[in-house]
Nucleic acid binder design. Structure first.
Length: 798
RNA sequence: GCUCGGAUGGCGAAAUGGGUAGACGCGAGGGACUUAAAAUCCCUUUCGGGAUAACCGAAUGCCGGUUCGAGUCCGGCUCCGAGCACCA
């Protein structure tokens, strides 16, 4: 890496003095201290006149420290927030920590430090790094999800949903590692094996708590249309919710779901999922052994390999059912290519018109019957022959439902949200089991249910959550009858922590409520939310769901939490993805030490479009630093003020417009380019800029390089913070010139450029072009047609 | 396999209600300053032909189309990235 230079040239105006070079280290620590001391970044939650909530997704405080990707995202949000402040808004920019979860727990187990000890240390390091980043964060309202004063309200949110009847318990399949004796998340299963010990993962059924998010599927889908969100994010949510319209049809006692009722005449067999409750009833004695063996094998397969290894296996039950359309008897099979968790866990197989069914039919020599023509009309379908697929769907459903054999049904891919974790490092689920009263929610006055400080938080052979091993915590009096009961020993998913945190930020410090109605009305919904597209689905969907429920309960008056959401891109380095194993991770501390926080921030934003990300190339940062050096030198070496230079003034106003257009649409890279261009104009040749030319530039730069801007703003003789100054305004009158350059084409090819009056007519422009030999020589005959775009272009078609 | 992005100089990238392709920055080359070097400042820099000039030609992943005019719109491909994965 190159070292920064330290310019020690003499000022042309003051040859006897040694000019002061820009030293980011001292400027930045000075202003960070000032901001802290003056409370510059603290929002007036109660009295703000024009509240603006600029939120960014909070980080997981890892032991490795802040990732440059975090810095990139936070800086992008910070620039937008600072810009809004300079528009006169009262901006609230909070930041906290998402510190519960399996990540911390596994890491703590690995290094042998208790998470309760490790997390505060990581947070302190994060805070130090974040502060160096010069973010306009209101640190007086930070939070950590691990703080009892926070998770007390996470538990409270659980209870609100519980009371609303949206929480239920059921047995669900989970990945089970027989060696570690623990449940694994899907992402912890790699090619069917446990990522830590390598043993083959199995499937187990365990009692789990669920949130009934699928009841909100339609609303979650429909509301998307009205949201000002990145289109890619909305699409991801739509796909995830996965609405599909079809029918449920009875094949004797078996109910199947299909989106293609029109193909029912081609249904040559029925398939049940191995877990389907009717498998036993439909299995003949001859087939029982084979079916049991198959089901047993399927149950031992882990969820991931079952979903990735796609060889079609299966076994016949030996029985048949009636196809309600044809009246024929068709065989019933069992196969794990049918999933119990989608639809009814049973399908009618139409091998002629479904690839998966076809593959299975080929493997087991089952009949294939074609019922739809290439032109999308039905054949071999009795009275429905000749109908289009579209019409037949409705007609067949109607006919079946008249006979009580089917009904139109809408299915969603979205499944209910499993929030149970058989782990230690999370908020305990506030439920008590009593032999007499059954399941009893912990009364709100008894919250929080504190996570006890225990040393043996490692899962053991029992397969039960570690908390169950601690009798003094586990045994508790029933809140209803007072008899000794037992606590729920599962903790909740971290996605619950983050599904409501935006409601808490403005209320941090108020321990009497989760969120105060007045404060919430003033600040929410969030005006602008910025985060990664990796959370496009789960986090954003869960947050929307929780918000909708709280709205339905009457606790808040809006049902969508984020008015505007923009997904930022990803940073790569020298064309490659950054990873610890490749050793190419950018450490923000290192770059800030060498180049300064302002240069680092500005460079991150200069890499490429914020919403697309960029390629971090070590050499590139010098260009941005040079720009800041020049800005410093401009203020230091100001020429005596004089009337504005017309050319420079015009450029200044064009720059104010460009930067003001670009920042709100997150076009930071082009905003920086425009300021650099202006700088080149300012210093063209040996030009020494004047105060009136430089001062507005200091304001434009402020969101990007806040410390430097504050320092220069002060050096220019201003008292308050540059962020309390008013964003410069451009004069549109200055932006249009009397003369413009008009592109001249012959037959669509560029042949020259002519300077002409802005309002020149087509006739004048054409004759002037024809008088120019270098253009006229390409015009071979009499012009057939002339295209004229006033003020821009002339095209002579010969 | 499906969904969503993307492909422009040596490199990161600009420019999309169709209208001067390559702004800005990096790198490279040259010059000024200096005893010298570094730093700084200035100039050049898409490619090819041509004498380093004038000038001419080509060019936004590939093939075709619409248009006076296409990086931008339409159709068909190729490649790269991300996410989801038997969703009936």
């Amino acid at each position: 890496m190159r070292r920064p230079y330290f310019a020690c040239m003499e000022s042309p105006d003051r040859p006897s003095e040694i000019a002061t070079p820009y030293d980011p280290g001292s400027v930045e620590s000075k202003w960070r201290a000032r901001w802290a001391e003056r409370g510059t970044n603290v929002a007036d939650i109660r009295n703000a006149a024009r509240p603006y909530y600029a939120l960014m997704m909070f980080p997981y405080p890892s032991a490795e420290g802040l990732h440059v990707g975090n810095m990139f995202a936070f800086t992008g949000n910070d620039i937008f927030a600072r810009y809004q402040r300079m528009q006169g808004l009262d901006v609230f920019e909070p930041l906290g920590y998402d510190a519960f979860g399996i990540h911390s727990e596994n890491y703590a187990l690995k290094v042998g430090v208790h998470p309760a000890e490790m997390i505060p240390r990581n947070i302190a390091n994060f805070r130090r790094q974040l502060e160096r980043g010069g973010l306009m964060v209101d640190w007086s309202r930070s939070l950590s999800t691990t703080d009892p004063e926070y998770y007390r309200w996470t538990q409270w949110v659980f209870l609100q949903l519980y009371n609303k009847g949206l929480v239920y318990k059921k047995a669900a399949a989970v990945n089970w590692c027989p060696t570690d004796k623990t449940v694994l998340a899907n992402e912890q299963v790699i090619a069917g094996a446990c990522e830590r010990c390598g043993s083959i993962v199995e499937q187990r059924f365990l009692e789990q708590w669920f949130f009934a998010i699928s009841r909100y599927a339609d609303r979650l889908l429909n509301n998307l249309d009205a949201l000002d969100w990145s289109e890619t994010t909305k699409t991801a949510q739509r796909n995830w919710i996965g609405k599909s319209e079809g029918a449920e049809i009875w094949f004797d006692g078996i109910k199947v779901f299909t989106t293609r009722p029109d193909t029912i005449f081609g249904a040559t067999y029925v398939v049940l999922a191995p877990e389907h409750p009717l498998v036993d009833a439909h299995t003949t004695e001859q087939q029982r052994a084979a079916v049991d063996e198959y089901r047993d094998r399927a149950s031992r397969r882990d969820l991931v390999s079952r979903k990735t290894i796609r060889d079609k296996t299966g076994v016949a039950t030996g029985s048949t059912v009636t196809n309600p359309a044809t009246g024929e008897q068709i065989p019933v099979w069992v196969s794990d290519y049918v999933l119990m968790e989608y639809g009814t866990g049973a399908i009618m197989a139409v091998p002629a018109h479904d690839e998966r069914d076809l593959e299975f039919a080929h493997g087991f020599e089952l009949p294939v019957k074609k019922v739809v023509h290439e032109d999308d009309t039905l054949v071999e379908s009795g009275e429905f022959d000749g109908m289009t697929v579209h019409d037949a769907k409705r007609a067949i459903i109607q006919s079946l439902s008249a006979k009580g054999q089917g009904t139109a049904v809408t299915n969603f891919r979205l499944h209910d949200w499993c929030i149970s974790r058989q782990r230690y490092w999370g908020p305990p689920i506030p439920i008590i089991y009593c032999d007499d009263c059954g399941v009893v929610p912990v009364p709100e006055k008894d919250l929080p249910v504190l996570l006890p400080m225990i040393d043996d938080f490692k899962p053991d052979d029992s397969g039960i959550s570690p908390l169950a091993r601690h009798d003094e915590w586990y045994r508790v009096a029933c809140p209803t009858c007072g008899k000794m009961g037992r606590r729920e020993t599962d903790v909740s998913d971290t996605f619950l922590d983050s599904a409501w945190y935006f409601l808490r930020y403005p209320n941090v410090g108020d321990n009497s409520v989760a969120f105060d109605p007045g404060v919430t009305k003033k600040w929410l919904p969030v005006d602008s939310y910025i985060g990664g597209n990796e959370h496009a689905v789960l986090h954003l969907l869960y947050s929307r769901f929780v918000t909708m429920v709280l709205h339905d309960i009457g606790l808040i008056d809006f049902e969508e939490p984020f008015t505007k959401f923009r997904a930022h891109g990803l940073i790569i380095r020298e064309g490659a993805k950054m990873s610890k194993s490749k050793g190419n991770v950018v450490n923000p501390d290192e770059y800030i030490d060498t180049w300064g926080s302002d240069a680092f921030r500005t460079y991150l934003m200069f890499l490429g479009p914020f919403e697309e990300g960029g390629d971090f190339r070590d050499q590139g940062i010098s260009g941005v630093r040079r720009f800041l050096d020049r800005l410093w030198a401009c203020v230091r070496d100001l020429a005596p003020d004089a009337p504005p230079d017309a050319e420079v003034d015009r450029k200044l106003h064009a720059t104010i417009r460009k930067v003001g257009d670009d920042i709100p649409r997150l076009g930071y890279n082009t905003a920086i380019a425009a300021m650099m261009e202006y700088m080149n104009t300012l210093r063209k040749g040996d030009r020494v800029p004047r105060r009136s030319e430089v001062e507005p530039l200091v304001q434009l730069v402020a969101p990007f390089a806040p410390h430097l801007a504050e320092e220069l703003w002060e050096q220019l003789g201003n008292s308050g913070s540059v962020f309390d100054s008013t964003w410069p305004v451009f004069d549109p009158a200055l932006l249009s010139t009397d003369e413009v350059e008009i592109a001249v084409q012959v037959n669509g090819k560029m042949r020259g450029r002519l300077r002409m009056a802005r309002d020149v007519t087509q006739a004048v422009a054409a004759s002037q072009a024809m008088n120019d030999e270098s253009i006229a020589k390409f015009v071979t005959g009499a012009p057939k047609k002339i295209i004229f775009v006033p003020g821009r272009l002339l095209n002579i078609v010969a």
